[in-house]
């Protein structure tokens, strides 16, 4: 029996049906860390399914061999030691899943390296142009609008405009900087890079686009949560408003700001943690989703 049809069905479920469900749910914004994990698990699950589907399509008459070696082989994890006469189908069967997984990995590495290069370039200029503030542990840039961003990774920098320093109160400013510190400490750029890698390989899959978009938003929420741990919700929310509302140069950068509204409402009216059952179910989903394609592709050897 060949597992390709089951795998394709599963891919359709994860890649096309699951994202709307996630988007409609209320819990992800209330448990953003868990939600990021679920999106990542779905992406991993989809990728494994794609690799295994490629394997099974290449070996339509593959018989499962009882025993551990057979299972490994059927999963494409084993090069078939001791199997006589590896035919073209077999070579293809090991090559295709390899191509899928390698292109994902390669894309991840490419995104990470390219981003690091851009950050290094940016940092070299920043260190000459900006004023280093030991008090704020940040680099201050002369700029007409209140703004803040961070350069994560190696030799991180937190950058804030002098307008923000003037406009915000000391506590508001520290809340904003705490938000940026959370991005750096949490290595959020690597999480985003996995979502970017997934979208570059599976551009046409709704899951990929939504995962990237939602991951970016959820990472902001995670950083927001970190900031309101040490500062009041009021201080943080008003800081957010000041940063968003005071005229940034139009057209200078991407407009798409309604995520700020979602974040602000969330900070102002914290809903509390989702029900433990919901948390539990989501955690189980995150843990099980990457294993499901393996179970589908390698029916347990008792079968």
């Amino acid at each position: 029996m060949n597992a390709a049809p089951a795998l394709i069905g599963y891919m359709a479920m994860v890649g096309f049906a699951a994202p709307p469900l996630m988007l409609r749910s209320k819990w992800p914004h209330r448990a953003p860390v868990l939600a990021v994990l679920v999106w990542q698990a779905l992406a991993l699950s989809f990728s494994l399914s794609a690799a295994l589907t490629a394997y099974h399509l290449a070996t339509p008459t593959e018989h499962l061999h009882a025993g551990f070696v057979g299972v490994l082989h059927a999963c494409g994890l084993h090069d078939g030691v001791g199997r006589p006469d590896p035919g073209t189908a077999e070579q293809l069967a090991t090559a295709l899943p390899g191509v899928v997984l390698l292109s994902l990995f390669g894309s991840f590495v490419w995104h990470v390296v390219r981003a690091r290069r851009a950050r290094n370039r940016h940092r070299r200029t920043l260190d000459i142009v900006g004023y280093r503030s030991d008090r704020l542990h940040a680099t201050v840039l002369p700029y007409g609008a209140p703004a803040a961003y961070c350069l994560p990774g190696h030799a991180p920098r937190i950058v804030v405009s002098d307008s923000a320093v003037r406009l915000l109160s000391a506590r508001q400013l520290d809340a904003v900087l705490e938000h940026e510190r959370a991005h750096v400490a949490g290595r959020h750029h690597l999480v985003l890079a996995t979502a970017e890698a997934f979208v570059s390989v599976f551009r046409w899959v709704p899951l990929a686009r939504h995962a990237r978009e939602q991951t970016a938003l959820l990472l902001e929420m995670i950083a927001d949560d970190r900031a309101v741990r040490t500062h009041s919700h009021a201080v943080f929310a008003t800081a957010m408003y000041e940063m968003a509302a005071v005229g940034a140069p139009r057209g200078a950068f991407a407009v798409g700001g309604h995520t700020v509204l979602i974040r602000l409402r969330r900070v102002l009216g914290p809903d509390g943690d989702p029900h433990p059952v919901v948390i539990g179910a989501a955690a189980v989903a995150a843990a099980v989703a990457p294993l499901l394609p393996l179970l589908l592709a390698c029916p347990p050897n008792l079968a």
Binding site: L141, L151, V159, E180, G257
Partner: peptide
């Protein structure tokens, strides 16, 4: 100021390298 403006715009997401400098506090609204 000219260098700073270019840096800010890069940092605030004008560049296509969103994950590069990224993670700016809020977007233009």
């Amino acid at each position: 100021e000219a260098y700073a403006a270019a840096l800010m715009e890069d940092g605030l997401g004008a560049s296509t390298d969103r994950p590069a400098t990224l993670l700016h506090f809020v977007e233009n609204m």
